[in-house]
Simulated scan of single mutants.
Amino acid sequence: MSDYNLKNLLESANNLKILYVEDDKDVMVETLQTLENIFNNILLAKNGQEGLEVYQQNPDIDFVLTDITMPVMNGIEMISHIRQYNKEIPILVISAYSDVPYFLDTIRLGIDGYILKPIESSQFFAILAKVVDKINLQKENNIYKHKLEQRVQEEIENRQYQEKILIQQSKLAAMGEMIDAIAHQWKQPINIIAMNIDMLHYDYEDNLIDKEYLENFTTKLQSQIKHMVNTLDEFRSFFRPNKTQTKFILSSVIDGTLLLIKDDLIRNKIQVIKNYENDFEMVGCENEFKHLILNIFSNARDAFNERNIQNRVLNIDLTKSDGLSFLEISDNAGGIPDDIIGTIFKPNVTTKEEGKGTGMGLYISTQIAHKYGGELYANNIPDGVKFTFAIK
């Protein structure tokens, strides 16, 4: 081995920890004289059992140098046990035996070199240099892999953070629309209550107020107040961050969502046709699933308005087939362009005019679908598009 290569070996091996297993004291002493010139951290064992115990106590050992024929446990058995803990650790065998069975056993166990006794120094150094190079390369690769994994994780966390911001913006936009819808829903019952209060004064002057009158009056007002309270409760429930997992009937979730946007549907002249013949039960967070439905409803409403559709129909069907349950929401708003329909569930994809859509609604919906173990997909139908949520 050249002086240059020996110098490189000494520099590269200086900080490595090795395990040397040898039952012959004389051979161990002689070999140690060489090893101690190269390695600063050498752990010793006099048989395979002891060597295995030393390895178990020191899992940071960089490589193993071992004899084969030893008492208690031989080198082959020890190597086999060590390989169960670490399939990559370099192992060198030093033995006086050159029989084929030994070679085959060591090859099967994936050793990195077989050195025959008596040890020839140039061969020994050459094999050590290859092993040390392999170890240092593995360490460099591990460092690079760790840094790469760290960068990937940081990028994933950054993207998740950005997506959370976009999702939050989408939710806030939905909240704004819902508040506007509720304001319109409350306008009618407030007007009715105000009108009845105004009539109360005149009816009193006309001596029309009796017990029956008061009961009817109270019933009318309570009915309007109940409608307002129900709307408010649905709104609060929809935006409350409740992640409790419960069983729910899908039709009731759909009806709750429709109640939230009832006035919006009336104002936009959208007729809703429901078919709950094959209703089914799900487990999860009701409010979360309402977001999936609401996003599809909102897209249909916007499509109706953008294309100025006159007879606006939204069909909601609950069906079952081949062990699957389906929620199908279809409209007659003209469908989705073929060059876009394949990407509408990706983030930041929208068919709306600039500034009128976040491109996150359907992305959020498909994430919710996946969370429930289902799939959400869309396909164009005559005059419109059908969104289908499928679950086992």
Results as ranks from 00 to 15, higher is better:
158 N>W: 07
215 E>L: 15
171 K>L: 14
165 I>Y: 00
198 D>A: 11
220 K>E: 05
204 Y>D: 07
172 L>C: 04
153 Q>I: 00
203 D>F: 12
182 I>H: 03
192 I>G: 00
170 S>T: 13
205 E>F: 05
168 Q>M: 12
176 G>R: 09
152 V>H: 14
205 E>W: 03
202 Y>R: 04
174 A>F: 05
193 I>E: 01
193 I>F: 10
224 Q>V: 03
195 M>N: 15
234 E>P: 02
153 Q>T: 03
233 D>R: 12
198 D>R: 13
165 I>H: 00
212 E>R: 15
195 M>H: 14
194 A>Q: 14
212 E>N: 15
167 I>S: 03
161 Y>W: 14
161 Y>L: 14
160 Q>P: 02
160 Q>T: 07
212 E>S: 15
187 K>P: 01
163 E>H: 00
231 T>D: 05
181 A>V: 03
180 D>K: 13
189 P>N: 08
231 T>S: 14
233 D>E: 14
215 E>F: 15
233 D>H: 12
203 D>K: 15
157 E>M: 03
194 A>S: 14
154 E>A: 14
206 D>W: 11
175 M>I: 09
229 V>L: 09
214 L>C: 03
186 W>Y: 07
205 E>Y: 07
157 E>L: 05
193 I>P: 00
185 Q>S: 15
197 I>M: 09
173 A>S: 03
163 E>Y: 01
213 Y>T: 10
214 L>R: 01
213 Y>W: 12
173 A>M: 01
223 S>E: 09
204 Y>P: 04
195 M>P: 02
175 M>Y: 07
227 H>K: 11
182 I>D: 02
192 I>S: 00
234 E>T: 05
199 M>I: 05
172 L>M: 12
232 L>G: 06
220 K>N: 08
175 M>W: 06
216 N>R: 03
173 A>N: 01
201 H>R: 04
171 K>H: 10
206 D>Y: 13
229 V>W: 04
204 Y>E: 09
195 M>Y: 14
155 E>A: 04
163 E>D: 01
160 Q>R: 05
190 I>R: 04
203 D>C: 12
215 E>M: 14
213 Y>K: 11
215 E>D: 13
228 M>L: 13
205 E>V: 06
162 Q>T: 04
166 L>A: 03
169 Q>E: 13
233 D>Y: 11
183 A>P: 02
211 K>P: 02
179 I>Y: 07
231 T>W: 01
152 V>G: 05
222 Q>P: 01
223 S>L: 10
157 E>P: 02
219 T>I: 07
220 K>I: 12
164 K>M: 10
228 M>G: 07
218 T>R: 05
190 I>Q: 04
234 E>V: 02
206 D>T: 09
215 E>W: 11
223 S>T: 12
226 K>M: 04
232 L>A: 12
200 L>A: 09
163 E>A: 00
167 I>Q: 02
162 Q>I: 08
220 K>T: 12
225 I>F: 13
183 A>E: 11
155 E>G: 01
164 K>R: 07
210 D>K: 12
158 N>H: 09
